[in-house]
Write a protein that binds this DNA or RNA. Structure first.
Lengths: 140, 140
DNA sequence: GTGTAAATGATGACGGTTTTCATTTATATT
DNA sequence: AATATAAATGAAAACCGTCATCATTTACAC
């Protein structure tokens, strides 16, 4: 059984072709952030005939299992990324939709302090910086 | 003409009953953050027979005019708040859906620095801290 | 008052996502 | 290896928040 198979099994899921292939796409794709539709199209290109509903289901199961993270970006559609255990935030280019990641311990710490000040028990946080990336600025 | 009427007029919009009433709801409602549906229901309670499509249109126009801000919270549905000119971020209670606001200049500054480091021209940013508010913690 | 562009309401469309349900498949057990 | 059974799948329809269409109504400049 492959490494991926073990991840799937550990999540309490049966090892099926759709699950193995979705995981493979996420691992081999040059784009780290993919929508369900992106994954679906990549599967079609690979010659795998897997339904879109299954892709959505599998991605949600992987999210529940902690294998992937879901980013809900502006305007209601989601992208997924392989979870690497390191929290990070995102910079999104509003022109080309490219996504970059960053980690900033100062911000992390301030967020924790604010939650405490307000009496909140923080479960999560999401920070998106929107802007125009270097390449898109140079193009125009 | 009321104060509100002037705001609407300044936005280049005709002063109509639906617009006055939507603005009134946003001002008098005890909840600062309302979805289009919330506003629509509040209008019905007031006895105003205004269509949901109009509520959406008016809120979008108010957003364009800078009278309200739209928050896109987790999973694609939006809430609106009266714009007071002061940028702030949000704490959301995942239990009771209450929303609190905060301002943190340290975070603001770090965000600007990160955008510069990454070569991004920042247009916007959104920061949400999710957690359980004080009241909900005490309840359980 | 009147003309004209703008605004409204009802309804249908839309897009991403989820549910339904009949069929197929993985896996534990014989 | 055959079988039983719960889980997984695919196709299609349902969903939900939001937006567009279009015929009718309204605000406001003249």
């Amino acid at each position: 059984m492959s490494m991926e198979g073990q991840d799937i099994k550990k999540a309490g899921l049966k090892i099926t072709l759709p699950r193995l292939k979705v995981l493979e796409i996420l691992e081999v794709s040059e784009q780290r952030h993919m929508s369900a539709e992106d994954v679906y199209k990549a599967l079609l290109l690979m010659g795998e005939d897997i339904g879109l509903a299954t892709v959505y289901r599998v991605l949600t199961q992987f999210e529940d299992a902690g294998l992937v993270s879901r980013l809900s970006i502006d305007g209601g559609h989601a992208v997924f990324e392989l979870e690497d255990g390191v929290h990070h935030d995102h910079l999104l280019c509003v022109s080309c939709n490219q996504i970059e990641e960053f980690v900033d311990e100062v911000i992390e710490q301030r967020q924790r302090s604010i939650a405490i000040e307000k009496g909140f028990k923080m479960t999560e946080h999401s920070l998106y910086i929107y802007g125009i990336c270097k390449q898109c600025q140079e193009k125009n």
